[in-house]
Simulated assay, not measured.
Amino acid sequence: MRSACGTAALLLSASLTGCGDSPQSALSPHGEGARRVAALWWLLFGISMVFVVLVTALVLWAAIYRRGSRVRVRMGSAQRFVVIMGVVIPTIVLVGVYVVGLRDLRALSDPRDPDQLVVEVTGHQWWWEVRYPEGGFVTANEIHVPTGRTVNLRLRTADVNHSFWVPGLTVKTDLVAGRVNHLWLRTGRAGLYRDQCAEYCGLQHARMAFHVVAQPPAEFSAWLAGQEHSATAPAGGLAARGLQVFQTASCASCHAIRGTTANGRIGPDLTHVAGRRYLAAGTIPNTRGYLGGWISNSQTLKPGNKMPPQPLTSEQLQALIAYLETLR
């Protein structure tokens, strides 16, 4: 008995640790929407544990103090107990949870804040396009937001259904073909939040992550101003050769770099690609080695994505990497 209890306690502790300490956890809230979700979860968990303990105690009591074979039970003698425990108390609990859920649902649907930053997010197989109408630019797979300000996310999909999930900041919302869904988030804590597509959307669904970068207002304003600028053409050297490679190879057919002739719309905008932390929607870190491998043959890292292998010479590849590293 003691061993079984110890095992159960260990499993419960492990499960809660996995939920609370992971980088993507609804039980480690840092946003107003996520706090409501976590509070509702803990409420339901607490109610469930009360009933688990109660039922377990009743089962043990019945097993220990069971009636003998000669005891005669009168029909209807337990009717009051059944009505109270099986009807009255569950009804009170369910109605109470329903009321709390409605309150949270209303709060999550309307932030009641007129000063909102609008960010448009479009899901692709398998990456995220992020557009800032206020700044007039597009980026990918990273959503920068200011702390203390409400962010209004307009969510749409360019192909199949996806699901936008930021468990540490707000609730999950689907991206449904043919419509625009709205979601808001607000946090007072600066930091990096790794997030995920939560709706199966094809072969690389598991590698369709993104990051929310929450920054103090002054730092966010500086980032916003930097993103508004077009790419600066390198003066010469290997990077200048890389710009020529980018514009003459197939890269410019799929990708855009503001300030150049590249105006592709199939893949992510690369105007400030060197400033991003990861490549391929969180699949690999944005380092020189991984960048070269991705350009050469991205199918070895993320099979099924729409970028074909690039038939570049070693000199062309090094020049292209040198150029892309200047795009900050």
Rank of each mutant, 00 (worst) to 15 (best):
V93F: 08
S77A: 15
V176R: 10
F137Q: 11
T122S: 09
W127T: 06
L108Y: 11
L94T: 13
L105P: 00
R112E: 13
G136L: 01
V50Y: 12
D174A: 11
L185H: 11
W126G: 03
V59L: 12
G191C: 01
P133L: 06
S109L: 07
Y132I: 10
P114D: 07
F51R: 04
K172I: 02
N152M: 09
R194H: 11
L153A: 09
L94A: 13
A78P: 09
D174V: 07
L60A: 15
D113P: 04
L54F: 14
V50G: 12
V55P: 03
L94N: 12
L102A: 11
V52E: 10
S69H: 13
N152D: 13
N141R: 03
W126P: 00
T122W: 02
Y193K: 04
V176N: 04
I84W: 09
V71E: 15
S109V: 00
W127H: 14
F51S: 09
I84N: 03
D195A: 15
V88M: 08
A78E: 10
V87K: 04
P146Y: 07
R70Q: 14
H144S: 01
R66F: 01
A107P: 03
V71F: 11
V88F: 02
F51M: 00
H182S: 13
Y65G: 05
L58Q: 14
R149T: 13
L108G: 06
T150Y: 06
A107I: 10
H144T: 00
V55D: 13
H162R: 02
T91K: 04
G101A: 05
V176F: 02
T56P: 01
W61N: 09
V95T: 15
L94E: 10
V119T: 10
D115A: 15
V73N: 12
V171M: 11
L54T: 12
G191N: 04
P133K: 03
T170A: 11
P133D: 04
P146V: 03
L117M: 07
S163I: 05
D104V: 10
P90G: 12
P146W: 02
V121M: 08
T91Q: 10
A158L: 12
V100A: 11
A62T: 11
R131S: 14
V180Y: 05
N161E: 15
N161M: 13
W61L: 07
E134Y: 01
V52K: 00
G188L: 09
V121R: 06
